[in-house]
Amino acid sequence: TPCSGDIQLTEEAVRRYLTRKPMTTKDLLKKFQTKKTGLSSEQTVNVLAQILKRLNPDRKTIHDKMHFYLKE
């Protein structure tokens, strides 16, 4: 639930967001803020980079910013 304060940075969670709509790296970081996940900034960078490498989402530029997205 949104109130649990227990958001986890997982491949499944990232996949869900990117299937819903294109997002920038910063958009994703906002969803997985360190204060919500309990990870350090460095861990967040490493884990999110690994997840994005595995998912290998398509990219498109919207308003001059690179967005990632996944087709269902």
């Binding site: 790296t25 900034s41 999110l48």
Partner: peptide, 20 residues
Amino acid sequence: SSSEADEMAAAIEAELNDFI
């Protein structure tokens, strides 16, 4: 802060671009 988020985003994108 937003500048920290900028740095984190830049680090992630740099790692992805190395990968590609």
